[in-house]
């Protein structure tokens, strides 16, 4: 703006060589600052990865995955088997509860509700629900289930995690259903299929890879949750295969339980558990990514 070429046939020099010093410094400075922001985000990630791997890797052995958790915080040595099983069982149960409801809910939003006021309200509230603090889901299940049953159980934890996963599954599934081309639906109804057959036989299979990957991301997020677990499942060190039978445990709960102790042995176990938990969460995330990229429907 400051340099205006007047008159002559010479075209204006737009190469940026004649930028005023102030403007070019401002531009460079801003670019550097913006780049710095990326570094600020990468730093904590690197710190977490480095610390968890370097401190947690030493505890990994065959015993680590199968042994019981030592009862005494001061006892050194391996054992996180119950917590690994607990994480898988409770998260798996939560997935069984939330994914069918979430997928059907998304079917309602995208296939039936569309732009009706009710559907739009549900959509907004599902977004709001993803922002509800996870501990609130724990308190809700504590009041609505644990007090009624009279005991903290693994199933209570699964219910709380299911509440947490539900809005995520709904919103990600709806995104995927939206990508299914309308021609498929029209072809199906053209053949005389009723709407429910169109949905179950055509729309959902077409979107199945996207739904799977979205659900796996929800599972990954739920697997790392601690707050609802300690409220509804309790802080113990044994795994019970029967989720309806008394207190249970998960890796996240073990990290919390052991990290708040001042003893080296328990802190070591916390690091080992953190590495195991991150490995599980990353596994889910990576599998979800692979499914999403391999089997995605052509978006255009």
């Amino acid at each position: 703006m400051t340099t205006l070429q007047s008159g002559g046939p010479t075209p204006p020099d737009l190469s940026g060589r004649n930028l005023s010093l102030r403007r070019s410094i401002a531009d460079r400075g801003a670019t550097v600052l913006i780049g710095l922001c990326v570094l600020i985000a990468a730093l904590p990630l690197a710190l977490v990865a480095w610390q968890v791997v370097s401190r947690g890797a030493s505890s990994w052995s065959l015993d680590w995955f199968i042994e019981e958790i030592p009862r005494n915080y001061r006892t050194a040595g391996p054992g996180m088997g119950p917590a690994i099983l607990g994480t898988l069982a409770i998260t798996g149960m939560a997935a069984l509860l939330s994914i069918p409801i979430g997928v059907l809910g998304a079917v309602y939003l995208n296939e039936y509700g569309k732009n009706k006021p009710l559907a739009r309200f549900i959509r907004t509230m599902a977004d709001v629900m993803t922002g509800v603090p996870s501990i609130m889901m724990g308190l809700f299940i504590y009041v609505g289930y644990v007090i009624v049953i009279g005991d903290k159980t693994g199933f209570g934890g699964a219910l709380a995690l299911a509440c947490l996963m539900l809005p995520i599954v709904i919103r990600s599934t709806e995104e995927m259903l939206r990508l299914v081309p309308d021609e498929l639906r029209q072809a199906s109804s053209g053949l005389g299929a009723r709407k429910w057959r169109t949905v179950m036989g055509v729309v959902l299979p077409a979107a199945s890879s996207g739904i799977t990957s979205g659900s796996l991301l929800a599972v990954a997020r739920a697997a790392g949750e601690t707050a609802p677990i300690i409220v509804t499942v309790g802080l113990t060190y044994v795994y019970k295969p029967d989720l309806f039978d008394g207190q249970n445990t998960t890796l996240a709960a073990q990290i919390f339980r052991n990290a708040s102790q001042p003893f080296a042995a328990s802190q070591d176990r916390a690091w080992g558990a953190a590495l195991t938990l991150i490995a599980i969460v990353f596994l889910f995330t990576i599998v979800s990514r692979i499914i999403a990229s391999r089997f995605a429907i052509d978006k255009r």
Binding site: A41, L45, V52, A223, T226, I255, L277, V281
Partner: peptide, 8 residues
């Protein structure tokens, strides 16, 4: 960064 569990 978003996938790291908060307890970690």
């Amino acid at each position: 960064l978003a996938t790291v569990p908060s307890v970690v």
